[in-house]
C-alpha cells in the first residue's frame, strides 16, 4: 500500500483498515509467542503434548502473519498471491518430506538407526 505516492491520505478508511490489521497481527503474534513460552516453561504438559501444542501455535502465527502483514485472504484481489503462497508451501513440503523419506529409506537398508541418519 503506497500511501506516500498515492492520493490516499493517512486518515482514509483504507489506511485505518490496514493499520488495524497490523496492530491485530502484532498483538496476536505476541500473544501466541508468549503462550508457547509459558507452555514450555510451565512444564505442565508432557513433552510430546508440549511439542504438538507449540507446533500448532507456530502454524497459527504463520497464518496470522500472512493475513495481517502480507494482505493475504480469500478476497478476489488476493487470489493470485494466495495461489503463489500455497504453491510455495507445496514445494517446500515436497522437498522437506521427500528428503526425509529418501534418507530414512536409505537408512533402513543400511541397518542404521533413525537417530544416526
Amino acid at each position: 500500500m503506497d500511501y506516500i505516492n498515492s492520493d490516499v491520505g493517512m486518515d482514509s478508511a483504507e489506511y485505518k483498515h490496514d493499520m488495524a490489521r497490523y496492530v491485530w497481527g502484532f498483538a496476536l503474534s505476541v500473544v501466541l509467542t508468549l503462550a508457547g513460552v509459558v507452555i514450555v516453561a510451565g512444564g505442565v504438559f508432557s513433552t510430546g503434548l508440549a511439542w504438538s501444542i507449540v507446533g500448532i501455535l507456530g502454524i497459527a502465527q504463520l497464518v496470522i502473519q500472512f493475513w495481517a502483514f502480507m494482505h493475504l485472504d480469500f478476497s478476489k484481489e488476493a487470489r493470485p498471491d494466495l495461489y503463489l503462497v500455497l504453491f510455495t508451501f507445496l514445494l517446500i513440503i515436497l522437498m522437506a518430506a521427500g528428503t526425509v523419506w529418501v534418507l530414512a529409506d536409505l537408512a533402513s537398508r543400511m541397518g542404521m538407526g533413525a537417530g544416526s541418519m
Binding site: W101, V102, D105, L106, S108, R109, M110
Partner: peptide, 8 residues
C-alpha cells in the same frame, strides 16, 4: 542406484 528400496 544409490541403495534405496525398489518400492521408492
Amino acid at each position: 542406484t544409490m541403495g534405496q528400496t525398489a518400492h521408492l
